[in-house]
């Protein structure tokens, strides 16, 4: 399965929260199909008996004390990049109509 349909691309775009233009959908359909065909070459690799590796540092369960810590950040600095705020919180558009 490597040739994507237009509907496949639109479904991926919806999952990715991207509102693609018609031109982008058509372009990505070709490009994604080509990239997926390339990575599918891995299907021919024999990996019998091997486990997947998800991280390479060898570290396990790095804990810290469950305590609050003051890093000296000011709330207004942390919110200064937000498009809209109210009462020290992010303000977003209506969710329910």
């Amino acid at each position: 399965m490597s040739k994507l349909s237009r509907d496949d691309v639109l479904k991926l775009a919806a999952l990715s929260k991207l509102r693609l233009s018609d031109d982008e959908v058509e372009k990505l359909r070709g490009e994604l199909s080509e990239i997926l065909s390339y990575v599918e070459t891995l299907n021919q690799v024999d990996t019998t008996g091997l486990e997947p590796t998800y991280q390479v540092s060898g570290l396990k369960n790095v804990y810290r004390p469950d305590e609050t810590k003051d890093y000296g950040y000011k709330v207004e600095d942390l919110l200064k990049n937000a498009p809209a705020t109210q009462d020290s919180q992010f303000k977003v558009k209506r969710v329910l109509e």
Partner: peptide, 16 residues
């Protein structure tokens, strides 16, 4: 499984 898990398993092969 077909893509991500397979890739991470080939990753083990490379590490070995």
């Amino acid at each position: 499984d077909a893509y991500y898990k397979k890739a991470q398993t080939v990753r083990t092969k490379i590490i070995n």
